[in-house]
Nucleic acid binder design. Sequence first.
DNA 1: CTCAAATAGGACAGATTTCGTCTTATTTGT
DNA 2: ACAAATAAGACGAAATCTGTCCTATTTGAG
Lengths: 315, 315
Amino acid sequence: MPKSQRLIQLIMMINAKKTFTVQELADELGLSTRTISRDLEELSGLGVPIYAVQGRGGGYRLLRERLLPPIAFTEGEAVAIFFACQSLGFFGSLPFDEGAASALHKFYHYLPADTKEQIDRLKDRVAIWSPERVMSPDALRTLLQALMTGGVVTIAYRSGGGPTRRDIQPIGLYASSGYWYCPAYCYLRREIRQFRADRIVSAALNPDHPGSPDIAELTLWNAMPGRTGAAGTVDFEIELTSRGVWTLASDNRFGPAIVRRPDGSGSASVRIAASDVRFYADLAWRMGEEARVVAPAEAVEYVRGKIEAMRTRYA
Amino acid sequence: MPKSQRLIQLIMMINAKKTFTVQELADELGLSTRTISRDLEELSGLGVPIYAVQGRGGGYRLLRERLLPPIAFTEGEAVAIFFACQSLGFFGSLPFDEGAASALHKFYHYLPADTKEQIDRLKDRVAIWSPERVMSPDALRTLLQALMTGGVVTIAYRSGGGPTRRDIQPIGLYASSGYWYCPAYCYLRREIRQFRADRIVSAALNPDHPGSPDIAELTLWNAMPGRTGAAGTVDFEIELTSRGVWTLASDNRFGPAIVRRPDGSGSASVRIAASDVRFYADLAWRMGEEARVVAPAEAVEYVRGKIEAMRTRYA
DNA sequence: CTCAAATAGGACAGATTTCGTCTTATTTGT
DNA sequence: ACAAATAAGACGAAATCTGTCCTATTTGAG
């Protein structure tokens, strides 16, 4: 095999191992150690971040960097990666932050001139915003670490009923409309719950609590549909003004269920878990006069109660 | 220069040009055309996506791919890029979709085994969700294209007052809490407006309308603060129950302004543009009994009116 | 149709690099 | 002190690479 090809093969082999000795590589490639030694020297001069540790137990190491072999990216791919990393940056306070930032740099730097131009033009014109970046990334980082090891985290949580302290075993971590949520098994309540990361006041790995392997195996996808409509379902029905139809059309809960009338107004009926009635009633409440809850009776009563409460407050 | 280094230099040179002839490279490197020809052959066999066009005016071309030189990525960077691309995918209906997907593939494929494991573990446990993916990416793609060329787009828009048809010149494109917004100069209203992409029924580039160069130079950042509080400002003041404090603490408009009382309740006062009073009153309305608008009087009246309207509707 | 500008690729001798072996020095953990 | 590693110089033999000189083929332009 010609040297040029061997070097590339070497990069890949190095890439796959963390540490290695010259002897190992020499055996694998059927070459003398001297040759490999020279090759590594050359690679090093070429920018591959390896370094040598002399002495017994020594060998070559990768400088905590894992190099990618010279993959070719499409222009489109490069642009996509750029924006993906950029939006990750906008998200603020998230586990991969620095990684994304430095990748962005390297990436941009090595891009051909005209792709750079294209990116320059778009970079100040396209963005993915997340409304806030108030929380510290510490909690997120801890949760992420627990997620990888399947460990348990002790958190101080600002819940609706006041601050609590509890052990949780994270199952996943997801961002939605600007917040990070962490579904986790709560050892205090003995069930799977969702925690909003910005309400976690402090978080620390709990090394004494082993955690359950069963829970460590759960993923976002099979933990989420936990909304087992245990107590049965009801039909939630609302009347909408024409403006209400317009506003709610883009809602992903009601939107698809809207039935429009010729005059522009409409109605929507969705089947929901009985336990979610209040939640949906609150959704309808937000719409103000544009929506009127028709069923179930419980929801109508709830809204009426709310109206009366408001009247009293504003009397 | 040894061949191995020359090959890498060649990759970079190729990367910088779109097309080139063997002669050019030979001159630049001071080698014979035959050698360069052989080198290119080798590079091609190595996976560099070049192809040749024979005949007069021919030469070598890059297969619409721009290769990156062999950059080394940190493990952290690789993970970050992976998730960045993944979340881009979750966003659905966005211009860089396929690019991100295929980059993801290449990336994953070439990753070292243990980084792969790490990613595998996280991939089903960490996600950035966007609530919906209802809209077709066509409109977005058109807007993006106009953004790059500084062109004008004719859109059919489902606005609050009913469907309209207008020419707009896009200034930017951003995603926020699950929606795509396009700030653009509207030739119908003769001012800069925000359009929500999912309300754009159809969009097509308007080649007859040249568009204004001034507007093409605007970016998201200098177009957004257009909220020039022309008509003066007012203090918007609300009272909060303790639960109200808890809920609103994470709001980025009111959150920082909340003043807590010993009993857990609180109040918040923010200075806003006079024209935004209704908007803020609606925000407060969503909180139901947990918040009571105190000032300005206009907002209090607005809420009272809303309560009465609700009473009537639910009578 | 013809010409010029490209790539495609074979053959071969001579130049150059690469490789293995041998050697010595140095570092470092046990 | 020893063993296991890297570091690096020297040198002849082997392998590769390079340039030159070919011939074919493709393709656009006049």
